[in-house]
Write a protein that binds this DNA or RNA. Structure first.
Length: 264
DNA sequence: ACCCCTGTTCGGCG
DNA sequence: CCGCCGAACAGGGG
């Protein structure tokens, strides 16, 4: 489910709990989701703290609690957030439950490719500061993009768009949508884009990211019918523009759909 | 039953 | 040594 817009929507699903204290933290420390995390500290520090605010950056979320406590969540492939009534009993895949007086904040992740992090300290956590500039920020400049593409010059552009160190929040469907709009064939090596194509890529990256934040990210509504994403998983998926059959192939380890007429 | 999957990490190999 | 690629992680849905 989660790329940057879905992550933004997921983040807001815990908003009903803003300003309220945590009465209990329920988790099983053995779960893969907590790999590398001090779950004892997480439990000990978070209880009786107030949920102050949250933020999304790329595919990561940061939940800020009183007493200098920071909870990081990555949804992986199958993770999601929701709230439940206070007396709710967790299911097998509900790996983290934060109890408040009026409700429970729940993180579910069946496949456990996601991750929970915890940090106690005055400053924002190091793993949060390390996230690359968001693609809709000013720091995602044409020259930064040019440099990143040069550094990964031999890889297919599709694979490079999936690198979170350059395109935080971009995942499989967004990468396909971006390349389709920029008229770039997904096999093209990143170092072999013309200046014109590079600018088209920069524009479409920002467009797809901003427009999906305004639909999916705002209220989980669908982007316009003219987007590629509606057709890309269909067996007989067609290019929204030419109505010809999309090509499909594994590139950079992921199923990729593209229009052979639009993208060259 | 079988195949596929909106993600990341790690080890092998060129 | 660098960097790409496939496999592995694990469960649910078509």
């Amino acid at each position: 489910m989660p790329e940057l817009a879905e992550v933004e929507y997921a983040r807001k699903r815990w908003n009903p709990g803003l300003g309220d204290e945590l009465l209990a933290v329920e988790l099983h420390e053995k779960k893969r989701i907590f790999r590398g995390t001090d779950t004892r500290a997480l439990r000990r520090c978070l209880v009786r703290q107030k949920f102050l605010r949250s933020e999304a950056r790329g595919k990561q979320m940061l939940f800020v609690f009183s007493g200098d406590n920071w909870l990081g969540i990555h949804l992986g492939m199958s993770g999601n957030l929701r709230t439940e009534p206070a007396r709710f009993g967790p299911g097998v895949h509900d790996h983290l439950v934060l109890r408040q007086g009026e409700r429970a904040l729940v993180f579910r992740d069946a496949r456990q490719f996601g991750r929970v992090r915890f940090h106690h300290g005055k400053e924002t956590p190091p793993w949060w500061n390390a996230i690359a500039p968001e693609v809709h920020s000013r720091d995602f400049s044409k020259s930064a993009l040019r440099e990143f593409l040069r550094r990964h010059g031999r890889a297919p552009i599709k694979a490079v768009l999936l690198l979170q160190s350059g395109f935080p929040g971009i995942g499989n469907w967004m990468a396909d949508e971006i390349l389709w709009r920029a008229h770039i064939v997904p096999h093209r090596r990143a170092g072999e884009l013309s200046e014109k194509k590079l600018i088209a890529l920069w524009r479409s990256t920002r467009f797809v990211s901003l427009a999906s934040l305004r639909t999916i990210g705002r209220d989980n509504s669908e982007p316009p019918r003219t987007w590629l994403l509606h057709d890309r998983w269909k067996r007989e998926g067609k290019c929204p523009k030419h109505k010809i059959k999309l090509r499909r192939e594994t590139i950079g380890g992921r199923t990729t759909a593209w229009c052979p007429r639009c993208q060259r």
